[in-house]
């Protein structure tokens, strides 16, 4: 505290000629935010999240290490067994890894939100006349960057070890876009978990229990034909399978199939259900 000035008195608010007028302040209040204000507040919160990302680059580990490591590892380990060679396996594997990485990134969204919410600054957010959804949606907007890195890096790694997507640049871009949209939508589930659980650790635990079955009990890494019937049935309805199939069609053939439609529909449903749930439990609990 040695940096304090000689007098705070000279600087304190009395120095200004301003006078607070309560009656005018009451008259100026408005009962709720406009949608435009809500969007603006969400963007301010997104900017805050981006700033934090820049200052804590280790937050990017999951979206950088996982695509690099898993792509190479799975390609060389399973390639021969599943597709008779690395090169043949890559068109199957890469979209699978994209889906897996994006899902893991979603989980990080929920965990980080929970951590963030335990900090004192959330008390202030709660006390401000701002949209209750903004502190939740803001970080999710910022996380678009993470999904983009995750999906982009996976494709890049694939290309480096010999993947040649026949869908061309547009097909791959479409696939990345689909993955990013899906990631953002599914992140609402984990955001909701973040608002109902007690700690960041429990978000992580619960998320794992959802994520593992969803990613591995899908067509992400193996062809569905090789699975027993009961499992194949589950795999076919698993939304992750739709995402993987949609991504494959885009990247490998450059076609927008029905799977893309199903994926987007599933995303819409998830957002419609979990965004209001998250906002409600955020408002109630914190």
């Amino acid at each position: 505290m040695n940096t304090a000035s000689p007098t705070l008195a000279a600087a304190h608010p009395a120095a200004t000629a301003y006078r607070v007028d309560p009656a005018a302040a009451v008259a100026a209040t408005r009962p709720r935010n406009t949608p435009a204000e809500t969007v603006g507040q969400t963007l301010v919160m997104a900017r805050r999240a981006l700033k934090k990302m820049r200052r804590n680059p280790e937050q990017f580990f999951d979206v950088t290490v996982q695509p690099l490591l898993f792509t190479a590892m799975f390609a060389y380990i399973f390639g021969g067994a599943i597709a008779g060679g690395v090169k043949n396996y890559l068109p199957v594997l890469i979209p699978g890894i994209v889906a897996q990485t994006v899902l893991t990134t979603c989980m990080a969204t929920g965990v980080q939100l929970r951590e963030d919410m335990e900090k004192g600054v959330f008390d202030r957010f709660k006390s401000l006349p701002m949209a209750r959804i903004a502190p939740l949606a803001g970080p999710m907007v910022a996380d678009l960057v993470r999904y983009l890195i995750a999906a982009g890096l996976t494709f890049l790694t694939g290309v480096v070890i010999g993947y040649r997507p026949h869908g061309g640049v547009l097909g791959v871009l479409g696939a990345v876009l689909l993955a990013v949209i899906t990631g953002w939508s599914l992140a609402w589930i984990f955001t909701w978990l973040g608002t109902i659980t007690k700690s960041a650790k429990s978000v992580q635990g619960m998320s794992m229990m959802i994520l593992f079955p969803l990613t591995f009990l899908s067509n992400a890494f193996v062809p569905v034909q090789t699975l027993p019937g009961w499992l194949a049935d589950f795999v076919k309805v698993n939304p992750v399978s739709h995402l993987v199939s949609g991504t494959r069609a885009l990247a490998n053939q450059g076609t927008v199939g029905a799977e893309v439609g199903w994926t987007l529909l599933a995303c819409l449903v998830v957002v419609a259900v979990f965004a209001p749930l998250s906002t409600r439990s955020y408002r109630r609990h914190l």
Partner: peptide, 22 residues
């Protein structure tokens, strides 16, 4: 009308509610 109230008050708590990372 909590939204109106939030436009009329400022609150400073026992624990600083500012963002540590900024």
């Amino acid at each position: 009308e909590p939204h109106r109230i939030r436009q009329l008050i400022g609150i400073t708590g026992q624990y600083a509610s500012v963002d540590e990372d900024m």
